[in-house]
Each structure stands twice: as structure tokens, then as C-alpha cells.
Nucleic acid binder design. Structure first.
Lengths: 216, 216
DNA sequence: ACCTGAACACCGTTCAAGT
DNA sequence: ACCTGAACACCGTTCAAGT
């Protein structure tokens, strides 16, 4: 790697490089030393811009959250809620490391507040009281987080031949006596580990439940 | 640490020790070398029982999932579903490392199949068709995973004074013009980051939506 | 089979120093 | 302020060897 001249580093450049490495080599293989090597500087050069590895993680997460599109203003509130949830899921699918960044690190940046603001604004405008809006926001956010993380996890597993082989082997070793439903529904279970349809199914259940409590 | 004599090691002992260390020192600080030191053996002794670190992770996860209580047989199906979801959440709260073990590693053991079996059995008995049962299972499972992981995350943050200070600082720095809803609902948001009530709120939304599709 | 000990190729981070 | 270089205290894992 070519040695970079002085004063060409910046937090933005480091964040961009970190993100690239997380996406090409996987979030688990990510390291500060790897970023430094990619930038052609010593590992300690990064400490001028970030106090430690966690701060860099937070910066990458906030950078990604900044890519979230705004809430569509011209729609009924259930469609607005759907749009916010779908765009968060889409962002996570496009940047799989985001799942780990959201689940593994406490929130601290303004950018996570933007999702909250979008969702809360829609719910308040729909007439829900403060407590219900807050509860609904947390429910929707954690649903998107959980279901999309799972989806990414399962997709990664399908790509890893060894893991996939093991999963198949375990499924086939389950006795139909002890696990009648799992054995019977194996094909359906395999089909519902992810995808737009599965995501929307759960989201629609939540929205249907929510619409029963509509204030107006 | 006293040197352990030969043939006193076993996979069960290693799993138990690993679990203790994850719970006392935190799942992030967990290491194979730490387990070996605690057992008074060299790091390589563990490789007789587990091919690598991930296999030990899986064994710990399956051990924990084995602690799940059976589904109560004498209840209406929505109550049965509630019971399964609540007991999975409770297990995760009692063993916070389980959240990371479930999210971070592919499933492979029989023990994860037990949760699926319980839930699927209930849903099939209630009259749902194969596809709906599978979709509902995935939705419920990912909701429990996502909401409880988030709850654990937030609780950990509250205990860490530095992280807590930073979160407060960010919340207060949000302008009421750009983030009107977040600023207005800050107290409500703080109250809905976890707890039985918040969990049941989301679960009830899902169940309400589901009951609209009840077959009978 | 069960376990040791040395070694390899990594980590994040501290500390003192240079420009 | 910005960055280097050596060092510290760790990792997981391989490999050859001992019992």
C-alpha cells in the first residue's frame, strides 16, 4: 500500500474506507489495522480522528442511517409507516453490516433519531397519544431490526456450503415423532426465512392490530 | 488455576464453564483461552471436544435453549402463543448472552427446533394452514429476538455511565425544530425501551392482527 | 483419545517520540 | 495537530509431540 502523504486523512475518508472493508470482507473480519493498511498509514493514525474502535463503528452506523430517505408526505398513515419500515429494511439489506452495528452498539448519534422522528411524526399526526406512539415506534423498530437481521443471517448461511449442509443434516435428523410440525412444515419454513412477502406479512399483522386502536 | 488431572474434562463441563464466564465477564470478553485458564488446562485441550470457537458457541446456545419450558397444553391458542414468546424472552433476559448467540450464529442444533415445534404445533392446532403457520412462527420468533435484544442492549447502556451520559447529551442536543416528536416524546421513549408492558404491547398487536385471520 | 508447548498471524490500545 | 514505531497484553488456531 502506498504511503499516504500528510493531511490527506479525514474522518469521512476513514468512515468510507471502513464501510468498504466491512462490505467486501465482512463485518466480522473488520479491523482497525485493516483500515489503516488500506489507507497506507500506521494503525495509530486513526486515533487522531476516533478515540477507539467503537467510535468508528458508531460513525459508520450514523453514516449509513443518514442514507435513509425521508417519509413520503402524501399518503395515509399506514402506508407511511410501511414506507419507513421498508426503507429501513432495504438499507439493512444493502448494507448487511448495519444489522450488527445497530444491534451491537448503543445508539448515540443524531442519525438514529431521524428514523424515530419520521415514525413518531406519522403516528402523532394519525392521532395516537404520546405513550402509544412511543410504544408503537419501539415495536416497529425492533420488528424491523429482528426480522431483517434474521433474514440476513439466513441468507449468509445459505451461501456458506458447510453451514448449509449442517442445517440440512439437522433438519433431516429430526424425528417425525418428536418434531411432527417442524418436519411436516420444513418446506414452508425454508420459504419463510426472508423475502419481501415474509417481511410484509409480519408488518401487516402489526398494522392490522394497530388499526384496531385507531383513535379517530 | 490448579492443573486439572487427565480425563476430567467433558463437553458438558466446558459448556458450563463457558456459560459462567459469558455471564460473569460478558459475552464480548469471552475467549477460549479464558475458558481453558478457568479449567486449569492449556488452550488446545478444548479442541478435543470442539472443533473451533463457533462450535462451542453453538453448544452453549443449544444448552440454553434446552432450558425452555414446554408449551402449556390447557389454554386457548393465543394464550399458548403468548406463553411461548414470553418464556423465550424470559430466558434471554436471564441469559443475556443468548441474544448474541441467537443473532450472531446460524442455527444448527435440535434445541432451536424445539421452539419452532412448540409454536408451530399450537398454530396448526388452531387451524392455520401450513404457510400461514410458518410465516407466523418466523414473525413471532423475530419479534421476540429483536425486541428482547434491544431491551438487553438498552439495559446495558443504562448501566454504563459513559454511554448513558452520551445518550442523554445527544437527546438534549436535538433541536425541537428538526426533531419535534423525538424531543416532545423523550420521556415516553425512555419508558418504552423495555419491560413487560412494552413487550406485551407489540405481542398483542401481532396477536390482534392474527386473530383477524383466524380460520374457524 | 487426550492433552501439552511452542509458534504463527493476527488483534486493540498505550506510550513516547517525532514533525 | 497529525502521525510514526515499538511495545504490551491479548486473541484463535496449526502443528508436532508426548502419554
Amino acid at each position: 500500500m502506498a504511503r499516504t502523504p500528510r493531511n490527506t486523512l479525514s474522518s469521512e475518508l476513514i468512515v468510507r474506507t471502513a464501510l468498504e472493508l466491512m462490505e467486501s470482507r465482512g463485518a466480522d473480519a473488520f479491523s482497525l489495522r485493516g483500515v489503516a493498511a488500506e489507507l497506507g498509514v500506521g494503525p495509530m493514525a486513526l486515533y487522531t480522528y476516533f478515540r477507539n474502535k467503537d467510535e468508528l463503528y458508531d460513525a459508520v452506523r450514523d453514516h449509513l442511517m443518514g442514507l435513509l430517505p425521508a417519509v413520503p408526505g402524501d399518503a395515509a398513515w399506514p402506508d407511511q409507516v410501511r414506507a419507513v419500515c421498508r426503507s429501513l429494511r432495504l438499507l439493512m439489506l444493502q448494507h448487511p453490516c448495519l444489522a450488527q452495528l445497530l444491534a451491537g452498539r448503543p445508539l448515540s448519534g443524531h442519525e438514529t433519531a431521524r428514523v424515530a422522528e419520521g415514525l413518531l411524526g406519522v403516528l402523532r399526526a394519525a392521532g395516537f397519544d404520546a405513550e402509544t406512539a412511543a410504544r408503537t415506534h419501539t415495536t416497529l423498530f425492533t420488528y424491523v431490526l429482528g426480522s431483517t437481521s434474521w433474514e440476513i443471517q439466513m441468507a449468509a448461511e445459505r451461501r456458506d456450503p458447510e453451514a448449509w449442509r449442517r442445517l440440512r443434516a439437522t433438519m433431516e435428523s429430526l424425528s417425525a415423532r418428536d418434531f411432527p410440525s417442524v418436519v411436516e412444515l420444513a418446506p414452508e419454513l425454508a420459504r419463510t426465512t426472508g423475502g419481501d412477502e415474509q417481511f410484509d406479512y409480519g408488518l401487516d399483522l402489526l398494522l392490522a392490530g394497530l388499526q384496531l386502536r385507531t383513535p379517530s
